[in-house]
Simulated assay, not measured.
Amino acid sequence: MTYRLTDRERKLLDHLQMDDETFQIRGQLPVGTGEITLHRLTELGLLETGGGRFGETGWRLTDNGWRCMYGKSQAEMMTNGERNHPLKVWSWPPTLDGSATAGQRHRRLQTLAPKLGMLPPKVRPLD
């Protein structure tokens, strides 16, 4: 079964990708990050715990966390040397939507042809 991440979980994963080497303690996490969010992402294997600053428990992204966001691990993204775009839907296991494939151009939205008719003449104000 596929689990789709909530907005708070996405916000946390997005924040943790900025510094992926160190374990972030509760004070360094985004506002609104609670025990339920941390526990759920740790259970799914998207976060791992370890010793953070001041000896407190901290969290950081795992390879599965990177796969959830980009469809690839961090090592795979660094080796191909191309720009990687995040997936549109963050879920575990990841559902590849085509945006993770490198070199693929984004499809542009088609614009509709203008269908303007004759505008009515301006009405003169009454004297």
Rank of each mutant, 00 (worst) to 15 (best):
G58C: 06
M118H: 12
P94C: 02
H15A: 15
G58W: 03
H39M: 04
Y3S: 05
H15E: 09
T101S: 11
L116Y: 11
K122I: 10
P125K: 14
E35D: 14
S91G: 10
L13T: 04
V89T: 13
G81K: 14
W90E: 06
S73K: 13
Q74Y: 00
G52D: 06
V89A: 07
D19P: 01
L87N: 02
C68Y: 01
R107G: 08
T79P: 00
E82R: 15
Q104W: 10
P30Y: 08
R105S: 14
L61A: 06
K72T: 03
T95W: 00
E82G: 09
D14N: 11
Y3N: 06
G52M: 07
P114C: 00
L16F: 09
D20I: 03
L12I: 05
K115L: 13
Q28T: 01
N80S: 15
T37P: 02
H15S: 14
D63Y: 00
Q24E: 05
D63A: 14
G52E: 05
F23S: 07
P30N: 09
R8W: 00
H85F: 14
G50W: 01
G50L: 06
Y3K: 09
R108V: 10
L41P: 03
T49Y: 00
R4L: 06
L87C: 02
N80K: 12
M77R: 15
D20S: 14
T42F: 02
N64C: 03
R124G: 07
M18E: 11
R124Y: 07
E21M: 11
P30E: 07
H85V: 15
D14T: 11
M78T: 12
P94I: 01
R105I: 10
L126G: 08
D20P: 09
G52Q: 07
D20Q: 06
G55M: 04
V89N: 05
G27T: 01
S91E: 12
K122E: 11
Q110E: 13
C68H: 02
G34T: 09
L96S: 00
L61F: 06
N80Q: 14
G65I: 04
Q104N: 10
S99W: 09
M118V: 12
L41Y: 01
G81F: 12
F23I: 04
W92T: 05
P125H: 14
D97W: 01
I25S: 10
M77F: 03
D7W: 01
Q17D: 02
Q17V: 13
L29N: 05
R107H: 07
R83T: 15
G103N: 13
T33L: 05
T111V: 11
R53W: 05
W92P: 00
L29C: 07
G34E: 12
S99R: 13
P86G: 02
H106L: 09
R67G: 03
R108T: 11
